[in-house]
Design a protein around this nucleic acid. Structure first.
Length: 428
RNA sequence: GCCGCCGUAGCUUAGCCGGUGGAGCGCCCGGCUGUUAACCGGGAGGUCGUCGGUUCGAACCCGACCGGCGGCGCCA
C-alpha cells in the first residue's frame, strides 16, 4: 500500500505492507523508530526487539537514512506518531542500504543545487514536482478541451525570433545553428493548417541574467490562434490560468500547505483580470515615486510596485511600439502603441505571459522591419505567411517555470524546475 | 554589461584592535523499550580559496588572481 492510502483508509489493527525509504531513524536500546517515506507521504514504523526476529531487528538497526525498506505490520493510531498512525513492525526488510546521506540540516541553497539529484527526494521538492506535474497536465487538458492542436517546432533553428544576441550558437555540420528562444514563428505557420495550435517545449536564452526570475533553459507554453484579436486571446489566457490554478487547488492543497503557500491568494484567481494600459501603469509608478516617464520600459521595480497593488494577475496592454518586437501589430487607432499584453502575476512576481496580435499584412510587416533596421531577407519564410491568404491572428508565450514559481510561492525560480540552468550552472 | 557581497572541518558557522583556531550538526565506537531534526559517554576530522607583500609574528592588514552569491539591465 501507498502510505497516503494507509493514512486515509487505514483502521486500527489492520495488517499493512509498505515500501519506501528511511526518512528519519532513531534508536533507543531495544526499540527503533523509523519514519518511512514513499512518493505519497510519511509514516512512523516501530520495531521492538520483542516483536521481530533477530535478523529483522538487525535490518532495522542497519537501515540508515535513505535506505530502501519493505515493512509489514499492524497499524495503530498514536498521537506521538508524526502523521497520526504508526506501524508496529512484524517484519522489517532492508532492501538497499544507503551510504551516509549528504543532506541534513544547515545546508546552503547552492550545495543543495549541487546535489539536486538527491535533493529531489526532499518533501519540499516532492511537493514542487507534484505541483509542476499538475500544471503541465492541466495545461494540456485545457488546450485539448478548447479544441487546440498540440504541435512540435524544432529546437535547432537558423535565425532569431527577436533579433537580439540572446541565442546559444551550436556547431551544426560545419554551419552555425542556434537553440530556439521561442517557437512563436513556427506556430504561426501551423495556424494556416490547424487554426488553433499550442506547444510545450524548452526555450533557450543566452542572456547573462542574474535574477530570481531567469533561467537560460525554461519551459515555454506557446499558443497561436487564427482570427483572434488581442482581447480574444487575453480572455483565453485568463480562463487558462484560472483553469490550471483551480486544478492545483483541487489536487495539491497538501503540497501547497507543506510549502507554506497562502492558499487564499490563489483562490482569488478568477476572471476577469484587470487590463491596465501601459500609460496608466506609468502614472501608477509615478504616484508611488518611481523615476519613469512615458517611453520607459517597465523594469523590476515598476513590476514590483504594480503587482504588489493587485491581488489577481493583471494584464498590461498597449505598450509603445518602440519597446516591443517588430511583429506586434500597431493599434490602428493609435499607431504609436501595439496591440499586445503582458500578464503580471500578483504578490510581486511579475511577468509570466507575453503576447498579442501579430502583424498579418504583408506591407505593414515589411515597413515595421525596416523601421527596426531588420533585413527582410533574414525572415523569408515568416514573411511568406503574409502572402498566401493571411489572416488576423494572436498568440502568447507562458513561462511555465515562472507560473509554478508564483503559484507555489517560491523565493527563486530555480526552485521551480528540477534541474535549473542559469548563467553559471549546467550541472547536475 | 553594470553595482554590491562572500571564501575557516563533510555541512552551517564563531573568531573585536594581528599573538599558530572554537562550536553546532554530520561521521565512528558504546549505552538506553516511546523517540519526534531524541538523549547520555567517548573519538576522529582544519596547509583558515591560491599566490605574493607588510610584520618578530597573519584566518585577521595590503595587493593580485581563482571560485561563488545577491541585485539591476534584458525577458517568459
Amino acid at each position: 500500500m501507498k502510505i497516503e492510502e494507509v493514512l486515509k483508509n487505514g483502521t486500527e489493527g489492520m495488517e499493512v505492507e509498505i515500501k519506501g525509504w528511511v526518512y528519519r531513524w532513531r534508536e533507543s536500546g531495544k526499540i527503533i523508530f523509523v519514519i518511512v517515506r514513499d512518493s505519497t507521504d510519511i509514516i512512523q514504523v516501530v520495531i521492538s526487539k520483542s516483536d521481530v526476529n533477530d535478523e529483522d531487528f538487525k535490518h532495522a538497526k542497519n537501515a540508515n537514512i535513505e535506505s530502501s525498506v519493505v515493512v509489514r505490520g499492524v497499524l495503530r493510531k498514536d498521537e506521538r506518531a508524526p502523521t497520526g498512525f504508526e506501524i508496529l513492525a512484524s517484519s522489517f526488510k532492508l532492501i538497499g542500504k544507503s551510504e551516509n546521506f549528504p543532506i541534513y540540516k544547515d545546508q546552503s541553497d547552492e550545495y543543495l543545487l549541487d546535489i539536486r539529484h538527491l535533493w529531489l527526494r526532499s518533501r519540499e521538492m516532492n511537493a514542487i514536482l507534484k505541483i509542476r506535474a499538475t500544471s503541465f497536465y492541466k495545461l494540456h487538458e485545457f488546450f485539448h478541451n478548447e479544441g487546440y492542436y498540440e504541435v512540435q517546432a524544432p529546437m535547432f533553428v537558423s535565425n532569431a525570433v527577436e533579433g537580439g544576441s540572446t541565442l546559444f550558437e551550436v556547431p551544426y555540420f560545419g554551419r552555425k545553428a542556434y537553440l530556439t528562444q521561442s517557437s512563436q514563428f513556427y506556430l504561426e505557420t501551423f495556424i494556416f493548417s490547424l487554426e488553433n495550435v499550442y506547444t510545450v517545449a524548452p526555450s533557450f536564452r543566452a542572456e547573462k541574467s542574474r535574477t530570481r526570475r531567469h533561467l537560460t533553459e525554461f519551459w515555454h507554453c506557446e499558443a497561436e490562434a487564427a482570427w483572434l484579436s488581442n482581447e480574444d486571446i487575453m480572455k483565453f489566457e485568463e480562463k487558462m490560468i484560472t483553469y490550471i490554478v483551480d486544478g492545483i487547488l483541487e489536487n495539491n492543497t497538501k503540497e501547497l500547505k507543506l510549502l507554506n503557500r497562502d492558499i487564499s491568494m490563489l483562490e482569488k484567481v478568477k476572471p476577469p483580470f484587470d487590463r491596465l494600459k501601459y500609460e496608466d501603469v506609468i502614472k501608477i509608478g509615478q504616484n508611488v515615486g518611481l523615476d519613469i516617464d512615458y517611453g520607459s520600459d517597465l523594469g523590476a521595480d515598476e513590476e514590483h510596485a504594480i503587482t504588489k497593488k493587485f491581488e489577481k494577475p493583471t494584464f498590461v496592454v498597449n505598450y509603445p511600439k518602440k519597446l516591443k518586437p517588430f511583429y506586434h501589430r500597431p493599434d490602428p487607432d493609435n499607431p504609436d502603441v501595439v496591440l499586445n499584453h503582458d500578464l503580471l502575476a500578483p504578490e510581486g512576481y511579475g511577468e509570466i505571459i507575453g503576447g498579442g496580435e501579430r502583424i498579418w499584412d504583408y506591407n505593414e510587416l515589411i515597413q515595421r522591419m525596416k523601421e527596426e533596421n531588420l533585413n527582410p531577407n533574414d525572415y523569408g519564410w515568416y514573411i511568406d505567411l503574409r502572402k498566401y491568404g493571411s489572416v488576423p491572428h494572436s498568440g502568447f508565450g507562458l513561462g511555465i517555470d515562472r507560473f509554478i514559481w508564483w503559484v507555489a510561492g517560491l523565493e527563486h525560480i530555480k526552485y521551480a524546475i528540477p534541474y535549473p540552468r542559469n548563467i553559471r550552472r549546467v550541472t547536475p
